[in-house]
Amino acid sequence: MLGQLVVSSLALGSIYALTALGFAIIYRASDVVNFAQGEMMMLGAMAALLLYRDLHLSYPVAFGCAVLISMAVAIVVERVAFRPLLHAPHFTVLLSTVAIAQVIRSGVRAFYGQELSSFPPAWSDAPIEVYGVRFTLLGVGIIATTALTLIIFLVLFARTNMGWAMRATAQNMRGAAIVGVSVPRVYSQTWAIAGGLAAVGGILLAPLIIITPDMGVIGNKGFIAAILGGFNSLGGAVMGGFILALMENLIGVYISSAFKDVIIFGCLIVVLLARPTGLWGTQKLKRV
């Protein structure tokens, strides 16, 4: 049973992890929580559906194009809803991201109507049983794609100039600017990457659930995962995603599914009280 629970949690945890990572990189770079992250997921899934099912592109091509589209949208969002508010209070910027979420959701609904679609799975969703644990190739595909995405992200982040500039900006924006980092470009790149991560999460999630303009609500789970793991720790956010998925299933099975959210949010408060920056988060020093 426990084995089954862990396996069942991995696919969903992957998606939570990608979303949480998207939240965390924007937060690290700009101290802002982007509440449109869930909507970016939905947008990615919608784009992939259109390209894959309606335009009959092959899955990898549709996948790649949808991710690129989402990255482009994220760059636009950053330019219109974030950068003009660079010196505005945090609360204003936060409201701006909430507004963007609403614009995307309502826009997609106006364009797409109330249609709900199931995304044809790229890998078989017929269950396979190994030593009493059931899983699907689809689940394996989701986990593998997530792992691949995380590796690509890690390489970009740790081994390229772009990653170096992003890290420098996150540490000290003014200092980075002085040594020649183009901070506006770093912002664009950060949002683009977050948008891309959201799209990957959304596309992977799509065949597990149903595509509707409202599927972005699952972005909230990524938000909780990021808080749990640590909003300013990228690895922490990823771990937070897996922990959250596992917790949900453990509580659901061994305690009660009705109290799942009560207990998870209760735990969240405890974690925040004990470690205000999340499990892996570190205190960012602010000099006054």
Binding site: S8, L208, I209, I218, N220, N249, L250, S257
Partner: peptide, 19 residues
């Protein structure tokens, strides 16, 4: 087994039903 309206994953509930 009960779930919240925005839930998208029902493994916990379904595994309990299986048990």
């Amino acid at each position: 087994e009960r779930y919240n309206q925005t839930d998208q994953d029902f493994s916990a509930q379904l595994l309990r039903i299986k048990q």
